[in-house]
Each structure stands twice: as C-alpha cells, then as structure tokens.
C-alpha cells in the first residue's frame, strides 16, 4: 500500500498546491448548471408537449402539433445524448453559422433531451388529476390553456415532484459526457489532474466519490420532499 500513499501524495500536490481544485470546482459548477438548466428547460418543453398530448383531437391543428411532438420525443428518446450533443455542436451550429460557448450548447441540448422525458412524466401527472378540475375551470369560462396552466398543471407537478427529482439525478449523471463538445465538467477537471501527475487512479476514484455523494445528496432531498408531500396529503 506504500504505492497508494505515494499516489495520494502526488494527487494532493496537483489537486491542492498546483490549484487543480479550482478546476474541480468549475467542473462541479458546470455539471450543476447543465443539470439545473436542463431540468428547467425540460419542464417547460415537457409541459407544453404534455398539454398538447392530452388536448382533445377532433380538429386538425392539435393533431398536427401532436405529430410534431411525437417526432421530437421519438428523436430525443431514441438516440444517445452524446449523439445529440455532437449533432448540435458540430452539425446544427455550423449550418446556421452561429457560434455558441459549449456550456450553453450543453444546457440547451440537455434541456431538449430532458423535455422529451419530462413530457411523458408530465402526461401521466396530468392524467392523474381529477378531470372534474378541468371541467370546473372550463365551466367558469376559462380557456383550455389557462385552465391547464392555472389549475391542472400545478396539481400534476405536485404529483410528479419525486419523479422529477429522479429525472434531475439522471441529468446529473448524464452530464459526464459533455467533454465530447469541450465543456469543462468534473471529468475534464480530474483528467487534467491525472495528466499532470501521470497518475489516474486516485483522481478517478475521487471523481466517482463526488458523483456518488452528489447523487445521494439529491436523492435524500427527493425523499424528504416525498415524505412532506405525503404528510400534506394525509391532512386532506
């Protein structure tokens, strides 16, 4: 094990004395930025898709919109996120001749991707709300969209909060591929430390630990949230 102590020592040197930790902090920040932005965009897109999906479809426009949404969801659920990142960064952006920092690209692509998954979660959430709620709002003269946004969706979100928490965890874990398009996440930070110390065992071990602690911490928050929601339901 003397070998391992040596490795620790080298790691510590690059991590602390040579300032590797600032990169780790940046990486951690970027990971959280991407996951949070992804979830927020995902909830917005997912809600819109879900509301279109449950809209009655005897008219043409809702059917067309629903068709578009189906293609969208099919694409983002049917291909790996790495592929989506690469397509966006190396195909879509150059085609439109636009430049964008890779961190922003990641936020957008994770948002688009998450939107496809959240739409399914949200749809089941909306279906779990008593149809009488929508009817009562419509009977008061509120439009379908307003009734959904003011009455149905807030109740749906309450029902799916724990599932959304899990989606957030999935996002955190999936951010580990953003270095494919040059975004600096935890992997990039620890890879840097490894490269500079010619030693990869400890850096990757610490990286794994950080991911695990982060995910467990969020899972705990989700549990707490779930419990407090259940308590408020019991009062009903």
């Amino acid at each position: 094990m003397g070998n391992f102590e040596k490795k620790l020592e080298v790691f510590w040197k690059v991590f602390y004395e040579y300032g590797g930790y600032t990169r780790v902090l940046t990486g951690l920040r970027n990971t959280i930025y991407i996951a949070v932005a992804g979830l927020v965009i995902g909830i917005i897109i997912g809600t819109i898709i879900a509301v279109i999906a449950v809209f009655p479809k005897y008219k043409r426009l809702p059917r067309i919109l629903d068709g578009i949404c189906k293609v969208y969801v099919g694409f983002f659920r049917g291909s790996p996120i790495v592929v989506q990142l690469l397509l966006f960064y190396f195909v879509a952006l150059p085609l439109f001749g636009s430049k964008m920092p890779s961190l922003n690209v990641c936020m957008i692509v994770f948002g688009l991707n998450s939107g496809a998954y959240v739409s399914e979660i949200m749809r089941s959430g909306i279906l779990s709300v008593d149809p009488g709620q929508l009817e009562a709002a419509r009977a008061l003269g509120l439009s379908y969209g307003v009734s959904m946004m003011k009455v149905v969706v807030p109740q749906a979100i309450k029902n799916i909060l724990p599932t959304l928490g899990n989606e957030f965890i999935v996002l955190i874990k999936e951010t580990s591929v953003v270095s494919f398009v040059g975004a600096a996440d935890l992997y990039v930070a620890f890879n840097y430390i490894g490269t500079n110390s010619y030693e990869f065992m400890v850096p990757y071990l610490v990286m794994a630990l950080i991911y695990i602690v982060l995910v467990m911490f969020i899972a705990m928050l989700v549990k707490l949230m779930e419990r407090s929601l259940r308590r408020s339901d019991r009062r009903n």
């Binding site: 008593d130 009488g132 709620q133 009817e135 009562a136 709002a137 009977a139 009455v151 807030p154 109740q155 309450k158």
Partner: peptide, 10 residues
C-alpha cells in the same frame, strides 16, 4: 357539480 370540483391547489 356533484363532486364540488373546487380547485385543490387554490
């Protein structure tokens, strides 16, 4: 309505 349908979130 028979089932009241007050908005639960309000």
């Amino acid at each position: 309505f028979q089932q009241f349908n007050l908005f639960n979130n309000k």
